[in-house]
Design a protein around this nucleic acid. Structure first.
Length: 704
RNA sequence: GCCGACGUAGCCCAAUUGGCAGAGGCACAGGCUUUAGGUGCCUGUCAGUGCGGGUUCGAGUCCCGCCGUCGGCACCA
């Protein structure tokens, strides 16, 4: 395997970094996902500082310009473009070879090794020095793989007294560690030291706020300041004044590599002329479609042939690759771009195609986008627009969801959409997980074949196994096929089981034995409406009794609210409660059965549709009988209130008695009722309560 | 290391957002139905807010400190 530089398409998502961070405020997304996106974009405020060197000024990015006086060496990433110029073999014999060797071993490191921050620091001194702009001191320039070319400028000013990594590096290579802050006495105490500015005694770097020392020259003074906010402000002002640097914002987010060297994907609408200059193909030739082929594999090369050029599957299809066009300079032969776009190219905007799927001219008509996705300023003034609700897995937190937001903003800037964001509300459903089991060789065994329990342990074919927990899948051998559940219980039971186990956004273990509970519920529901032996509908047209009617309307009220909030688990629990109550009746009144079935329709559409039909509403679309378009029931507010309410009476915060009062009773009435309670009289023993708290409709608390 | 979520009964989970700890399901026990079986029906039991402080008349809920689990990022200057 070898690395190779390639010419590829990039999307300049970094120019949208600020808007992608700031507009998160407009979104009805969870804080967790917003935090992940902020973290991924990684905006940090700091300063760019130039250190003069023989290869030219070396720019560094730092969030702590206030520590510039402590910058006693510099570290460049091994791939930094200045390295070869700085490493002068005339000054340091053999340096070029040493650096080449270091680069090779750094490149060879696996990614997980590079990310392991406990790994011992390594590096090479280039032999060159730069100048610290704040004090004119020469500082040695090193290269080390703990500085990443992909972040900031690929070079850092090392402040070993105040940065853990720089401290470790200085210790390893015996570099001086000048102190520029005096840590508080407590810092030394915790480390069993006397207060000292002799950093040779420090066990680690001091990171934080402390009074500055050795941080003054004729132009600026940090000594005397005690916090970094002030220190940074003073230093930044000097950097701008002196021209040695400037304040800047840095991002972790990189530009988006948009080319793939494979067959499947949208081809780029780009052709190259004989001189290799790119041209976009004329609109009349859009869209550029993939050519037919039966050769999808990339070309393979001799493993040692480091000079070979990669070839994408499209490259060799010359009939397609070469195209005769008149782009204004007469008919000429052009060669197509042989890259294709990544899968995100489609997932960034597929949702807009749904709102105008037959449109041949545009991805969707302007008015369709405005109707379905335009900003809902009636909901809130800063509503960004976008689709109302997007349900998906949290695994898309930073790639799909960030790319789609970027893409949408580009379309907005180009005037193609009226919404600034694609997904106004995002909901991440949890995963159904399952236990997985490993044998003594640490190999996963089929979870379905494991027997045992938590107390006695678990075995597989008689061998002891250990239990883990994770996403269902082939690798953990713990998947439960939905087909089996469907075969055994039907789709409605499976749906209900998945929705009722807990909140939609929480992950939880699959428990096959629990599924039967929902199956029983649906059977009870069926029997409440249908005679099992005859198949006839058994509901009666006599009115429901008062209690049942109240329960029905409370259920309607509750389920409506909970469905809106996507709290399917609690909605289902309430519907089971209602059904259980109906089961106890001699016959099911139609005025209860119909709204109950209507409420269940979104949750268990198949059995609900069947019951609706059996209730006499025709048999489906043709005679208008489908339940799909039946309005969700609405609760009668008059049936939601009771005449009387039983309130708990607490004495010193513990429930000691109860009292029934009229629902609309005022405080004084409730107070009088509570004080007349025998238990209260006994507790007061003739005295006055120290305090009496009455919360109408809730409770009474008496402090004695 | 940083960021985020979470911790309630044997298990999965509720709790009107500071107000009676228990809605629902599973499991368990007893009974019923059935030729039989349970993927049928009825009745019922037990016990719990991770730990330590604080605020409050009142804390599962708010605050502080620990412990633990899960997820994301990570030598990010």
């Amino acid at each position: 395997m070898f690395k190779r530089n390639m010419r590829q398409w990039m999307m300049r998502i970094t120019t949208y970094a600020d808007r992608l961070v700031d507009d998160l405020e407009l979104l009805d997304w969870t804080d967790a996902i917003k935090a992940m996106q902020r973290n991924w974009i990684g905006r940090s405020n700091g300063a760019k500082v130039d250190f003069a060197s023989e290869a030219g000024p070396i720019s560094v990015f730092t969030t702590r310009p206030d520590t510039l006086f402590g910058a006693s060496f510099m570290v460049l990433s091994p791939e930094h473009p200045f390295v070869d110029q700085l490493a002068d073999p005339a000054r340091t014999p053999g340096i070029a070879e040493e650096i080449a060797a270091y680069r090779t071993q750094a490149e060879g490191k696996k990614e997980f090794e590079l990310q392991d921050d406990t790994r011992e620091k390594t590096g090479v001194f280039t032999g060159a020095y730069a100048t610290n702009p704040v004090n004119g001191e020469p500082v040695p320039i090193w290269i080390a793989d703990y500085v990443l070319m992909g972040y900031g400028t690929g070079a850092i000013m090392a402040v070993p007294c105040g940065d853990t990594r720089d401290f470790e590096f200085a210790r390893k290579f015996n570099l001086p560690i000048p102190a520029i802050q005096e840590p508080p006495a407590s810092w030394f105490e915790e480390r069993g030291l006397d207060v000292t500015l002799d950093t040779r005694q420090w066990p680690e770097a001091f990171v934080g706020d402390a009074p500055y020392v050795n941080s003054t020259n004729e132009h600026l003074q940090l000594d005397g300041l005690v916090n970094k906010v002030e220190g940074i402000a003073v230093m930044n002002a000097w950097l701008e004044r002196s021209g040695a640097g400037e304040t800047t914002v840095n991002y972790k987010l990189r530009d988006w590599l948009f080319s793939r060297q494979r067959y499947w994907g949208e081809p780029f609408p780009i052709v190259y002329d004989a001189d290799g200059n790119p041209h976009s193909v004329p609109d009349s030739m859009l869209p550029v479609e993939l050519p037919e082929t039966d050769q999808f594999a990339p070309r393979t090369f001799d493993a040692d042939d480091a000079m070979s050029n990669p070839e994408s599957p499209l490259d060799r299809l010359d009939d397609w690759m070469n195209v005769e066009l008149d782009l204004g300079d007469g008919l000429q032969t052009y060669r197509r771009d042989s890259n294709v776009m990544p899968q995100w190219a489609g997932s960034c905007w597929y949702q807009m195609r749904y709102i105008d799927p037959l449109n041949d001219d545009r991805f969707c008509a302007v008015e369709n986008e405005e109707y379905w996705m335009g900003p809902r300023t009636d909901v809130r003034p800063d509503h960004p627009g976008g689709i109302d609700l997007y349900v998906g897995g949290v695994e898309h937190a930073v790639l799909h969801l960030l790319y789609a937001r970027f893409w949408h903003k580009v379309l907005f800037d180009l005037g193609h959409v009226s919404s600034v964001e694609p997904y106004a509300r995002l909901f991440n459903q949890g995963y159904i997980q399952a236990y997985a089991f490993k044998d003594e060789r640490e190999i996963y065994v089929e979870a379905a074949e494991v027997v045992g329990n938590t107390d006695d342990g678990w075995t597989h074919n008689g061998e002891p196994v250990t239990r883990e927990y994770g996403k269902m899948g082939k690798s953990l051998k713990n998947a439960v096929s939905p087909d089996e559940m469907y075969e055994a219980y039907g789709a409605d039971t499976l749906r209900l089981y998945e929705m009722t186990g807990g909140p939609l956004d929480s992950s939880r273990p699959w428990e096959t034995r629990d599924v039967v509970g929902m199956y029983r519920f649906l059977q009870r529901l069926w029997r409440n409406v249908i005679d099992e032996s005859t198949g006839e509908c058994t509901v009666v047209d006599t009115p429901a009794d008062a209690d049942t009617l109240k329960l029905l309307h409370r259920t309607i009220d509750f389920v409506r609210t909970e469905m809106d909030e996507l709290h399917f688990n609690t909605a289902i629990a309430k519907l089971i409660e209602l059904n259980n109550a109906v089961t106890k009746l001699d016959a099911t009144p139609r005025e209860v059965a119909e709204p109950m079935v209507a409420m269940l329709a979104p949750l268990v559409p198949h059995i609900a549709e069947e019951l609706w039909s059996k209730l006499g509403h025709g048999s489906g679309r043709d005679d208008g009988g489908t339940i799909t378009y039946v309005d969700f029931p609405v609760a009668d507010p008059l049936l939601l209130v009771d005449d009387t309410v039983e309130l708990p009476i607490q004495i010193n915060g513990k429930v000691r008695s109860r009292v029934s009062v009229a629902t609309d009773a005022d405080k004084a009435t409730i107070e009088a009722a509570a004080l007349a309670d025998p238990k209260v009289i006994e507790a007061l023993a003739g005295g006055e309560p120290k305090k009496l708290i009455v919360v109408p409709g809730r409770m009474i608390n008496i402090v004695v």
